[in-house]
C-alpha cells in the first residue's frame, strides 16, 4: 500500500520509496534512511514526522513528509 509519509501512524515500519526533491533525496540517502525500512517513530498532528533507523532519529518537516511516498510494510500477524 502506497501513501504519503505524513499519513503513516506512529510506530509503523515503512519504506521511503519516492522523495521528489533531488537535494532532500540525496540528504536522506546519505543518512541511510533510504536503505530499506524505517520506523515511523512519531507523527505530530499537522507537524513533523520523526523516523528512525538503527538509532538514528531524524525529524522531517510536515511539507517534506507530505511529498514523500512510502510503502507500508504488511503488519505481522493478522491482516487488517
Amino acid at each position: 500500500m502506497v501513501v504519503a509519509l505524513s499519513e503513516v501512524p506512529s510506530d509503523e515500519r515503512v519504506e521511503l520509496v519516492d522523495v521528489p526533491d533531488d537535494e532532500c533525496r540525496a540528504r536522506l540517502l546519505r543518512l541511510g534512511l533510504l536503505d530499506g525500512s524505517v520506523e515511523c517513530r512519531r507523527r505530530i498532528r499537522n507537524g513533523p514526522v520523526v523516523v528512525r533507523r538503527r538509532g538514528t532519529e531524524v525529524a522531517l518537516g510536515r511539507s517534506l513528509a507530505r511529498e514523500i511516498t512510502v510503502e507500508r510494510a504488511p503488519r505481522d500477524g493478522a491482516p487488517q
Binding site: 536522506l28 543518512l31 532519529e57 531524524v58 525529524a59 522531517l60 518537516g61
Partner: peptide, 9 residues
Amino acid sequence: RRDALIEQL
C-alpha cells in the same frame, strides 16, 4: 523558499 526541515535528533 522555505527550507525543508531535516533535523537529526
